[in-house]
Amino acid sequence: MKINDSPHPYAAVTIIFWSLAYVLTRVVLQYFSAYSVGFLRYFVASCTLVILALIMKMKIPRIADLKWFLMSGAVGFFLYIIAFNKGSERVTASMSSVVIATVPIMTALFSYFIYHEKLKGFQWAAIVIEFLGVIILTLMDGIFTVNTGLIWLLFAAIALSAYNLLLRKLLKDYSALQVSTFSIFAGTLILTIFLPTSVREIRNAMPIHLLYILILGIFSSAIAYLAWSKAFSKAKHASTVSNYMFITPLLTTLLGFLITKEIPDWSTIFGGTIILLGLFIFNFGERLYNRISMNRSSS
């Protein structure tokens, strides 16, 4: 397969920029509110995408479908980014990446109830394992505590999972590029309620902080989502691309240490390991079982 026809370079670019977003979000939240970071990040992304849409002469959605784009923007970008930022204020970048990495499984779980897609026994077991990992994440200093940051992040993961379900409807009539672009536009439109606060905070910001916002908007949002869409368009199976999300916790932890010297605590290490184990079983359990069965039969 030629590199131009492979989804892997595009998926890898996305995961790098998304992993960087966990770290940079923690940094900018020291100088901006969670609401301002949300608006400024997607405002920059929208400005970038406007240029691309004009260059590509992208067709606008049908009027009858505008409500669905508004809904996807509200759920996937407005609710998600506010919950994500509020959660990132209170937990480490590595912990936030572990929680958001559960989105593929949450999406599958919601699909089970909404679209009646079947889950196999080992997948239900994986969900139980992940739930145990989330419980361990709440054990700060050996004491069970209700960490508000973790609750916000779980809400963010639910919002992103709901957005994935909306994608299934929109992708029947529109390209992945159109869906991501116009959903971001819709989310940014709703986020303009935080425009006055954002303007006040920008006036007191240092140039380096504005640079971080630009990186989040251009690279971790606009380019990342476009690369993600491109990867899906080139992949034969969606799991080939979505499985890259499982790399984000490790990469985020490394970037967090290199950029901010952030070291994950023991609850994050143990809880995160258990959650990643659940993710592995959910996605590769059947393949591993079949391989073991073939080895036994051949011997």
Rank of each mutant, 00 (worst) to 15 (best):
residue 12 A to W: 15
residue 106 M to F: 15
residue 72 S to I: 06
residue 211 L to P: 03
residue 16 I to E: 04
residue 249 P to D: 03
residue 264 P to K: 01
residue 13 V to H: 02
residue 226 L to G: 08
residue 239 S to K: 09
residue 217 G to W: 08
residue 68 W to N: 12
residue 102 T to K: 01
residue 230 K to M: 12
residue 198 S to E: 11
residue 172 K to F: 06
residue 295 N to W: 12
residue 100 I to N: 13
residue 192 T to Q: 03
residue 231 A to V: 04
residue 87 G to P: 03
residue 93 A to N: 04
residue 297 S to Y: 14
residue 168 R to S: 03
residue 46 S to Q: 10
residue 183 S to Q: 11
residue 80 Y to V: 01
residue 273 T to M: 10
residue 9 P to W: 00
residue 266 W to Y: 08
residue 143 I to S: 14
residue 17 F to V: 06
residue 20 L to F: 06
residue 71 M to V: 13
residue 217 G to C: 11
residue 296 R to G: 00
residue 70 L to V: 04
residue 76 G to V: 07
residue 190 I to C: 01
residue 140 M to C: 08
residue 231 A to K: 08
residue 12 A to Y: 13
residue 293 S to L: 15
residue 60 I to T: 14
residue 168 R to P: 02
residue 29 L to H: 08
residue 136 I to Y: 06
residue 243 N to Y: 07
residue 26 R to A: 14
residue 40 L to V: 07
residue 46 S to V: 15
residue 222 A to L: 01
residue 254 L to A: 15
residue 225 Y to W: 10
residue 188 T to W: 13
residue 203 R to A: 15
residue 89 E to W: 01
residue 275 I to Q: 00
residue 119 L to Y: 04
residue 36 S to A: 07
residue 39 F to R: 01
residue 173 D to V: 07
residue 151 I to R: 00
residue 124 W to P: 05
residue 108 A to P: 03
residue 230 K to A: 11
residue 28 V to W: 00
residue 90 R to C: 01
residue 109 L to Y: 02
residue 123 Q to W: 03
residue 98 V to S: 04
residue 162 A to T: 11
residue 117 E to R: 05
residue 296 R to P: 09
residue 219 F to A: 12
residue 169 K to V: 12
residue 1 M to D: 14
residue 32 F to P: 11
residue 95 M to P: 06
residue 149 G to M: 00
residue 272 G to W: 00
residue 88 S to W: 00
residue 86 K to A: 04
residue 92 T to Y: 04
residue 146 V to A: 08
residue 2 K to Y: 07
residue 96 S to H: 07
residue 9 P to H: 03
residue 284 F to I: 05
residue 224 A to P: 05
residue 174 Y to T: 05
residue 157 A to S: 10
residue 124 W to A: 02
residue 139 L to C: 11
residue 179 V to E: 09
